[in-house]
Design a protein around this nucleic acid. Structure first.
Lengths: 237, 237
DNA sequence: AAGTGGTCTAGACCACTAT
DNA sequence: TAGTGGTCTAGACCACTTT
């Protein structure tokens, strides 16, 4: 919406300072010659990107930027998987193992039940940067296709391609120090700091289907984001 | 919006599987007896939370959950600052220092220019969990108020309270290993894994005003999030 | 050509806040 | 009581995709 961008630029220019009130929606209607609905949707757009607050019955106020509403996305993480020219996925293991205690807990199965264990390393220009370890519920009707275990299926974890049985997933991210196995797979030193991105995906019966961890070398990853007034709130001109 | 929640529940129940198309907006109008605008806004809500895709001229499709659109917020981080019962802020330093090379670079000033250095430790129940180090552009007209340096001002960094000169900020998050000073301040061991949340805030002339780092013990922090169909898309019943 | 999402209008009523 | 944001209607036109 054009009006949303106009308002964004006014805020960005300091025309409306943090804490101050924007003109009321009805005034904006008259000033810009648009209907109430259009004004409201414009302001909703500013609300969504977090540059204003609205208080019913009172007004719309410019927010001061703070750490509160900040979010980090995994775009940089994802972009790595798209860059197929420099990225190679090595499948280290694709075997059937019996679930240990932790795995049984995460996948809501019994200790000793069979699971499919996958170990993959993501290599960029000969440099191993991500170690992925995943355990899947063993399903005898779904044979393991080695070919499917390479870039495509890791890429699928991101874009959600093909798999229609998944309903939702839980993610956690931690700062860890690499253990011996991880350091070895990532060709670096013991205790190297790293991100651990853990994921569990559930089917439509809320049963866990997979549990895994991305171990990412801390010296290769940095997540960036920003707060406050963006250049533009919507893609149009 | 009620319709948005109805549709969310239908998707959640597996009525519309990932990849499949939702009924067209005009059909939803008839089926639920609401106007086109209302239907469109409902679907916009699903779009915003990332459970559907819309393709102009084609239809609205249910997304499979993937890591792509995942975002982590700092809510858990923020909640710590609100919990004033168990949280104490110790100001270790509040002095004027000359900028070193890195500081000069980040704050876009000259090496040797004066800056205000703040060092604070956030203690929860006697347990130091966050070490905050910040450098501010020195402004002789803004005297340092010791009282302001405690919880309130750290809290202000989050909610953006009071400060009306700030327009935007850049944030990065890294996995690091504590150096000697940090380990000492956080009462833990050298090389302990940790999150480093770095922030730079800019004024309306795009000049940096402050640069700082939150060092958070990795064994005290875990960021969580989820993807896929949420319980409810809007707060109403 | 028919159907789809994207956008907009010019009103309306409501719940809430301020005075 | 007047003003504010929140929601909704019943149409309309457009750009786009599909058949």
């Amino acid at each position: 919406m054009q009006l949303a961008n106009i308002l964004t630029e006014l805020v960005s220019a300091g025309e409306y300072l943090p804490g101050s009130r924007l003109p009321s929606e009805s005034k904006l209607c008259k000033r810009y010659g648009v209907s109430p609905m259009t004004v409201h949707r414009s302001i909703k757009a500013l609300l969504d990107v977090g540059i204003v607050n609205t208080i019913k019955g009172s007004g719309t106020y410019v927010k001061a930027p703070g750490l509160k509403g900040v979010t980090f996305d995994l775009e940089e993480f994802h972009s790595i998987f798209r860059d197929k020219k420099h990225i190679k996925v090595n499948v280290l293991d694709a075997i059937i193992v019996k679930a240990d205690k932790t795995t049984a807990n995460r996948l809501a199965i019994n200790e000793g039940d069979r699971t499919v264990l996958l170990k993959r390393v993501l290599v960029r220009d000969g440099d191993p940067i991500i170690y992925h370890k995943e355990k899947l519920i063993y399903d005898p009707y779904l044979p393991i296709m080695e070919a499917e275990l390479e870039v495509t299926s890791l890429h699928g974890l991101f874009v959600g391609g093909g798999e229609t049985r998944l309903k939702r997933g839980d993610l956690t991210i931690e700062a860890i120090a690499l253990n011996e196995e991880e350091a070895n797979k990532l060709n670096t030193v013991l205790h190297q700091p790293a991100f651990c991105l853990e994921h569990i995906f559930y089917d439509f019966d809320d049963r866990p289907l997979s549990w895994g961890r991305f171990i990412c070398r801390g010296d290769r990853f940095k997540f960036k984001t920003s707060v406050g007034v963006p250049a533009r709130v919507s893609p149009s001109a």
